[in-house]
Simulated scan of single mutants.
Amino acid sequence: MEKNIVAHSYKIGAEERRELNGHNSLLVFFTGLSGSGKSTLANAFEERLHKEKIRTYVLDGDNVRKGINSNLSFKPEDRSENLRRIGEISKLFIDAGIIVLAAFIAPYQKDRESIKNTVDAANYVEVFVNTPLDVCEERDVKGLYAKARKGQIKNMTGVSAPYESPIEPDVEVSNENSLEESVDIIYNKIKNQIRLKK
């Protein structure tokens, strides 16, 4: 089947779309435990970029699992497939000239590395939302940790499944930073990657 697939060559590509938008396109990938604040931070960061007329789109773990990845479980192999699809979707958005903000637990280093390779390292920014497990459990906004501790949820990252912290994230923020501080930290770190070089 694969030998019969031939990619069509189009005249308009990522560079032309970036030029039209007036900014670069890339993937800002937020990783951390459930309850670490990934989605809240991605949302706040998108608001910051939106005010600056930068085109963005947020891919969030729960939202994606309700749609395109609704057939996947939380077993390790399905978690990897979930993230593989996210990498491919992000690659399409990058080609469309858009900055993608992806908020996923992404517990395994190999999966994050795979996404980085899919979108190209030059288009990948890894943000580690380094909130300790005990703080995440105190928040437990979805009640998942309580259920996991009772054995009602299997393969819960941080409880019955591992989380491999990023070795060298591009940006690291923690619960000790306010939301505004975290947004500033990320923005100041990658602002030169956002703007097109004149």
Rank of each mutant, 00 (worst) to 15 (best):
A121L: 15
A121F: 15
A121M: 15
A121Q: 15
A122F: 13
A122M: 14
A122D: 14
A122Y: 09
N123M: 09
N123T: 11
Y124G: 01
Y124L: 02
V125T: 01
V125K: 00
E126S: 00
E126Y: 00
V127I: 10
V127Y: 04
V127C: 05
F128V: 01
F128D: 00
F128E: 00
F128H: 03
F128Y: 12
V129T: 01
V129Q: 01
V129M: 00
V129G: 00
V129L: 02
V129H: 00
V129R: 01
V129P: 02
N130E: 04
N130F: 00
N130A: 11
T131H: 04
T131M: 03
P132E: 11
P132G: 10
P132H: 10
P132N: 12
P132M: 06
L133G: 08
L133Y: 08
L133Q: 07
L133C: 06
L133D: 09
D134M: 10
D134C: 12
D134F: 05
D134S: 15
D134H: 12
V135E: 14
V135I: 14
V135T: 13
E137R: 03
E137P: 02
E137I: 08
E137T: 05
E137D: 05
E138R: 12
E138N: 12
E138H: 04
E138G: 07
E138I: 13
D140L: 14
D140I: 12
D140S: 15
D140W: 14
D140Y: 13
V141I: 14
V141K: 13
V141W: 07
V141L: 13
V141T: 15
K142L: 10
K142D: 07
K142I: 03
K142H: 08
G143Y: 03
G143R: 07
G143Q: 03
G143C: 05
L144Y: 10
L144I: 14
L144F: 14
L144P: 11
Y145A: 10
Y145K: 03
Y145V: 01
A146F: 02
A146D: 04
A146V: 07
K147M: 11
K147Y: 09
K147C: 04
K147I: 11
A148W: 01
R149C: 07
R149G: 05
R149Y: 06
K150T: 05
K150G: 04
K150N: 14
G151I: 07
G151C: 09
G151A: 06
G151R: 06
G151D: 11
G151Y: 05
Q152T: 09
Q152C: 01
Q152M: 13
Q152Y: 08
Q152P: 01
I153G: 10
I153V: 13
K154Y: 10
K154N: 15
K154R: 13
K154H: 13
K154E: 12
N155F: 13
N155P: 05
N155L: 07
M156W: 04
M156S: 11
T157M: 00
T157E: 01
T157V: 09
T157Q: 02
G158K: 04
G158F: 03
G158R: 02
V159D: 06
V159T: 10
V159A: 05
V159F: 06
